[in-house]
C-alpha cells in the first residue's frame, strides 16, 4: 500500500477527485485507489508527524511517495525530478546524516531546511551539498526510513534564491504542478507492476529454514544456475528420508562443489583421521581451521591398555594435518 504525501492542498488537487476522506484523528487524510493520501501543511514537523502517524496506524503501507516543490540551487532538469539523497540543516550547517531514497536511478539531491532561506550566501553554501532546497521532504523520508519502508521523493524545482528575494509564482501555478505530479505518479507508480521478488524455487521433499534458504540461493547464484541438478536432488531424496536431513546434505554437497579447495582439504583430513576415528578417537579441529590447535579425546576403556591409548595419541599425524590445514597439498 502506498502513502502519498503533499504539503499543500492545491498541489494534491488533481488527485482529490478520486479521494475519499479518511476517518482519522488528523485532518487532510484521504483514501485513494491503492493507498492513502495526506496533506500535512508546511514545515518539517508536520511532515514528519503526518507520515509517521500514518505509517504507525497502517502497517500495510510499504511505500511513501512525496510530491512537492523545491527551490532550485543549481541547474536541474525541467519537470518532476526524483531525489537521490536528502540532507537536512537545522541551522546554518547541514547535518551529517543523510537519507537515500529507494529510486536507484535518481541523480539529484535535496536539502531540507528549517526556515525559508532568504540569504544568498547561505544558499551558495547549501548548494555545495544539494541542487534543491525545501522544508518538508526530509521529514517524510525520515519517517519512512524509521519505519523501514520504501521512499520516493519527487520535486519540481522552481524558484531560485536571488538577491534575497524568493520568486513566488508558485500559488498561481499549483494547478499545473498538480497535474504534472498526477501524470508522473500514473506513469511511475500507479500502473507500475509490483517488482517481482526474485524468489527461488525450493525443491520438493526438503525442509529449509530461513537461513538454509538463503544459503541455498547463494550457492545457486554462485554456481550461476537456477536450480540444483535434478539428479542430485533425486540422489539425496533417495538416500535420506528426513526432509531436514536432506536439506543439510544437499547444502553440504553444494558447498563442496562451490569450494573445491576446501572440500579437498576436508577429504584429505577425513582420510588421515579415519583410522583414529575408527578406534574411537574424537578429533576436533579449530574453528575454520584458523589455528593449529587440534583436540583429541578418547575413551580409555575402549582400548585394551593405557599403553595402546597413549600410543594411538602419540602416533597421531598432527604435522600432516596442520600441513593440510595450511593449504599444502597437491594440486586439484
Amino acid at each position: 500500500m502506498q502513502l502519498l504525501h503533499f504539503v499543500h492542498r492545491a498541489e494534491a488537487e488533481f488527485f482529490l477527485p478520486r479521494a475519499e476522506p479518511l476517518e482519522f484523528p488528523l485532518p487532510g487524510a484521504y483514501t485513494i485507489p491503492g493507498g492513502i493520501l495526506i496533506i500535512s501543511g508546511e514545515g518539517a514537523l508536520p511532515s514528519l508527524s503526518y507520515v509517521s502517524a500514518m505509517l504507525g496506524a497502517y502497517p500495510q503501507i510499504d511505500t511513501v511517495i512525496h510530491y512537492g516543490l523545491a527551490a532550485r540551487l543549481a541547474p536541474l532538469p525541467h519537470g518532476v525530478v526524483s531525489v537521490r539523497t536528502l540532507y537536512q540543516a537545522n541551522g546554518s550547517e547541514p547535518d551529517f546524516h543523510s537519507i537515500t531514497t529507494s529510486d536507484a536511478q535518481a541523480r539529484e539531491d535535496l536539502l531540507s531546511v528549517a526556515r525559508r532561506l532568504l540569504d544568498p550566501e547561505q544558499s551558495t553554501q547549501f548548494s555545495h551539498f544539494a541542487g534543491m532546497l525545501d522544508r518538508e521532504a526530509y521529514g517524510a523520508a525520515f519517517a519512512a526510513h524509521l519505519f523501514r519502508q520504501k521512499v520516493f521523493i519527487y520535486k519540481i524545482p522552481v524558484d531560485s534564491v536571488e538577491n534575497g528575494k524568493v520568486c513566488t509564482d508558485i500559488r498561481n501555478l499549483s494547478s499545473t504542478y498538480s497535474q504534472m505530479y498526477l501524470e508522473h505518479y500514473e506513469a511511475n507508480h500507479q500502473n507500475a507492476k509490483k517488482e517481482e521478488t526474485a524468489e527461488i524455487e525450493l525443491p520438493e521433499g526438503f525442509y529449509f529454514t530461513v537461513h538454509q534458504k538463503h544459503l541455498y540461493k547463494k550457492y545457486l547464484q554462485y554456481a550461476e544456475i537456477d536450480s540444483a541438478d535434478p539428479e542430485l536432488l533425486d540422489f539425496v531424496r533417495q538416500g535420506i528420508k528426513h526432509p531436514k536431513k536432506r536439506t543439510a546434505r544437499l547444502l553440504e554437497i553444494l558447498r563442496k562443489e562451490n569450494n573445491p579447495i576446501e572440500a579437498r582439504a576436508e577429504e584429505l583430513l577425513d582420510e588421515l583421521f579415519a583410522p583414529y576415528r575408527h578406534k574411537g578417537v574424537d578429533i576436533k579441529l579449530p574453528d575454520a581451521m584458523e589455528t593449529n590447535s587440534i583436540r583429541l579425546s578418547l575413551d580409555i576403556s575402549r582400548f585394551p591398555s593405557m599403553k595402546e591409548a597413549a600410543e594411538t595419541i602419540a602416533s597421531f599425524p598432527r604435522e600432516q594435518a596442520v600441513r593440510i590445514m595450511n593449504g599444502s597439498f597437491s594440486k586439484l
Binding site: 547463494k218 554462485y222 569450494n259 584458523e290 589455528t291 590445514m325 593449504g327 594440486k331
Partner: peptide, 28 residues
C-alpha cells in the same frame, strides 16, 4: 559474486577464505 562465496573470520578479525583455501591459493 564477491560475497556469494564463503568467508571465515580469521584470527585477526578479518574475513578471509578458509585457511586451506587461501593458503593453497597463495602457495600455488
Amino acid at each position: 559474486r564477491l560475497l556469494l562465496t564463503d568467508y571465515v573470520r580469521s584470527v585477526d578479525g578479518k574475513l578471509r577464505y578458509a585457511r586451506p583455501k587461501r593458503m593453497f591459493l597463495l602457495q600455488s
